[in-house]
Design a protein around this nucleic acid. Structure first.
Lengths: 266, 266
DNA sequence: GAGTGGTCTAGACCACCCG
DNA sequence: GGGTGGTCTAGACCACTCG
């Protein structure tokens, strides 16, 4: 509970005593780690372990400072970074909350397909297939699974204003998403990441996408109601939870006749 | 030179006296602006005016603190945000430098097309056309120009390892890029944004892209060496300089047979 | 050794929210 | 009025760079 020595500005103790700079004598790597980074890691642990659940209020800065025996400023800097990474949300006068996918604000962080005209809104969702299967080699590799491990395969079609626009396939590690069925997916309202977070305790915090242009194959063409060969945007996404652990592979085909993938470079 | 009052912690002056909270009596809007935001705006002004040029060292934090009559911590927070926005780069022990597009590090911030295998590298560049013309209506609107204003039109083909992969069209405000010719584009080595920055004093700091899948038209198909109708990624980019001023419209067609558009959602 | 950014602390006060 | 995050200051020390 108290892995950190205190460092009053002028005391005689060794600053950064726990930071690793002395411990790395053999490795010859500096591995200096500031105090606030260590605090950040401790807070992240509590987030990951579920001590504070998505949507909940975490202890105040002064409280955390007391717990970790550091100044409020140090806790503040740690939380600043967590807020910048969207793991946590600050609200002045109220406190700091664990981020959740159950908010309007979060919904369009991972859904980047916007209508060319009009305001963004949520698509209708039709589940086409859900099954448990042995992970194909490529999927296993991208999800860091052993070849042959079980995965849940999901296929779904999403429509904006009745117009089929997104055809998606997902692969999820079977060990984590045990018991995920078409019924539960159908019943659930709101974004799929909200369900993952609430029902399976797995929160997506980061994703990496590779985007290509492809021609619609016969199956996709029929489902999306376009001619075979119609150019589609293909987005292959790997999502990660705490600790950079891959927990989702998703391949989406986007019809971009009246929508576009929005990206801001900054 | 001294638009800011000083705010010692315990003095009797009115804190945030220049922040606008009192000045907005009629408008009823809070419009409270912290000191460090005002400092940030002042530093940004100096960047925009060219007082410190891309690649140059800006004054040290203590020096700026003295100039603006605030504490180093306040200057620090201002620079922190500028560094987060890539306007400035900090280097411990050396100082803070104005960001420039003349660095390896910056080159792939706006070029997101990566090879499916192997390490990212720079494409060869072949200028196909450069001309001065009257801005088409759509271009004028996106660049906030008056319909009929002059624009520079550029068409170029980029190849990776000899394979044509990117076909791009650009529209630049004629008033800013006066004297831009095919020769200067051909002679210039390195990224185009580097030339814009060095030769025309206009630094791109942000861009917004809309991405679609399209079929190759006959002209594009021939230049890229593919069949007509081949699916291509179409990225329409509007770039901005200081003050959110649009200064470039770019439409790129990407052949994604052996490359992909890389995007990280975080 | 001098100068720079980076960390850490302590304390004061402000803006915001709620009971 | 009391609690929360947000701002601002001042001072000390650390890590890094360079002459």
């Amino acid at each position: 509970m108290n892995p950190l020595p205190s460092h009053p500005p002028g005391d005689g103790s060794t600053p950064n005593g726990a930071a690793g700079s002395t411990a790395a004598a053999a490795g010859n790597l500096p591995t200096f780690s500031p105090l606030y980074q260590q605090i950040k890691a401790l807070i992240t642990q509590s987030l990951q372990s579920g001590e504070w659940k998505p949507g909940e209020l975490i202890p105040s800065e002064v409280e955390l400072a007391a717990r970790f025996k550091v100044s409020q400023g140090t806790v503040r800097k740690a939380i600043d970074e967590l807020a910048a990474e969207n793991l946590v949300m600050r609200r002045q006068g109220k406190g700091t909350f664990v981020s959740t996918h159950h908010e309007e604000r979060a919904h369009f962080r991972f859904l980047r397909l916007m209508p060319d005209t009009g305001v963004p809104h949520h698509p209708d969702n039709r589940i086409l297939d859900v099954r448990r299967q042995s992970a194909p080699a490529e999927v296993a590799q991208l999800l860091s699974l052993k070849s042959g491990d079980a995965v849940i395969y999901i296929k779904r079609l999403m429509s904006f204003d009745g117009a089929p626009t997104i055809l998606e396939e997902l692969w999820l590690p079977g060990a984590i998403f045990k018991g995920l069925t078409a019924e539960r997916l159908d019943q659930y309202k709101g974004p799929m990441y909200g369900l993952f977070e609430s029902e399976f305790g797995t929160r997506m915090i980061r994703a990496s996408e590779k985007i290509r242009a492809v021609g619609a194959d016969p199956a996709a063409a029929e489902l999306l109601g376009v001619a075979e060969g119609t150019p589609l945007l293909c987005a292959e996404r790997v999502s990660f939870t705490y600790g950079d652990k891959a927990v989702e592979l998703r391949r989406g085909l986007y019809l971009t006749a009246h929508h576009h993938y929005q990206n801001d470079l900054s």
